[in-house]
Design a protein around this nucleic acid. Structure first.
Lengths: 235, 235
DNA sequence: GTTACCTGTCACATAAACGTCACGATGCGG
DNA sequence: CCGCATCGTGACGTTTATGTGACAGGTAAC
């Protein structure tokens, strides 16, 4: 879950330190030394999260936060406040404004990264993935369970994701490269034939329980999940 | 989130002022002018939060707080300390005892209400206090006891909370970071692998009595409590 | 103090899952 | 019916995730 983070911090040394750590954690960082600059950046590129120093020259961090909350487009962006002292009053005001967390300096890089992760996760679309049921097959993301004709089926992580994708995009044909993008992720580099192998593993896990070939091969194009059996030959 | 608040304050004027503001914020208020009265009230009706003056006639606020923390039933109730002095030592002592926040007089009503909101929100996700019984396991939050197939099992505090959470959210898969948030709290920072270790401690405490693996591993995703045993299926 | 937990972290062991290949099987166009 | 392209399959070495035992620090009870 790499994120695009806006860092608003006037002290150059600290800004550099934080930015380095964020980058190392896989995030991209946009920097501003004052609230005015930050405001300008926000207008152009919406960040996923704002790291905001409490004390800033000119417009205060509080004021900047308030404006973020006032604007429709930026209202949902989580804010983590940075503050030099652990003054309780600041904390209350910050949380009151709608900051999602606050960190008092000095803090460890690990702690910072951990909190960012926590806030992003909390804000993340709590997509309550619904179970899919199709052709005697049932796949439930919440329990991470697959049932074929009532029987529990054991799948590896990749086969699970593969089946999930195929079932939620049933009846459609997916090329190997499409499947690699959707199931493996578009950054990984694996052979296309690897898909074949996982399809095989998927079938051999499902078909002892089912007697129809739901995961079908479309020669020259790819694979498809379908309840409509085109042709089934076995012995 | 309206709450039932116990206000312990000996100065009538201040008590009245605070009570009025709390009521206006939608809370219900129980009042006491001294710690003895407060103690009596607590025995009859558990408050959601205690607003406690530091300096009281007779038993001091500190002593009252200590007793609240000592009793199983009142241990979880958040405490906000009120004090006229802003001396660091008091603050440290207060937080040491287990106060959740600390406010020095004079304070604005708005600040008070904001802090109460913050503290309540922090404490908000309180699990149900009912006993859970599942798959031969019985866990009772009230007595802090766990029985596996009739036999009493000894668990450390963390293992207890972990099991409690897993049982009250059975069948669902929880990632390590979700478990850290829910069982440890989202402000704590520990390694994700620490979860593994506690799962192991939990298992080795339970499994001598049970013969099924109720705490299951879902490779690549996390852990799950389930009475439905996933079998290993081979080709 | 001393003792007996409990805790978080590590290093290492174990097991599952992964990606790749070689080869055989199958389908399709000519 | 042939030949080529495509796909299925089993095996295998490697990578990754999880299980496990040990350890140092911390805390509370005694």
């Amino acid at each position: 879950m790499p994120a695009n983070i806006l860092l608003v911090e006037d002290e150059p040394a600290i800004q550099e330190l934080i930015a380095a750590n964020l980058t190392r954690a896989g995030h991209t960082v946009m920097r501003a030394s004052d609230a005015e600059t930050a405001q300008r950046i926000v207008r152009e590129a919406l960040p996923d999260l704002v790291l905001l120093d409490w004390m800033l020259p000119g417009m205060s961090g509080v004021e900047f936060a308030r404006r973020l909350r006032a604007d429709e487009r930026t209202r949902g962006i989580p804010i983590i406040m940075l503050t030099a002292r652990s003054e309780e009053q600041d904390k209350v005001m910050g949380l009151d404004i709608g900051a999602d967390d606050y960190i008092t300096k000095p803090f460890s890089p690990r702690e910072l990264v951990a909190r960012i992760k926590a806030v992003l996760r909390r804000r993340a679309p709590q997509a309550t993935e619904d179970a899919v049921e199709l052709g005697g097959l049932r796949l439930d993301p919440a329990t991470h369970r697959v049932t074929a004709a009532g029987e529990l089926v054991n799948l590896g992580p990749t086969e699970f994701r593969l089946l999930h994708f195929l079932m939620t995009h049933a009846e459609r044909v997916h090329s190997r490269s499409q499947l690699l993008d959707q199931v493996w992720g578009d950054h990984v580099f694996v052979e296309e034939r690897t898909v074949d192998v996982h399809i095989r593993r998927l079938r051999s896990a499902l078909e002892p329980s089912l007697h129809d070939r739901l995961v079908q091969t479309v020669r020259g194009s790819g694979y498809r999940f379908s309840t409509e059996i085109t042709e089934m030959v076995n012995n």
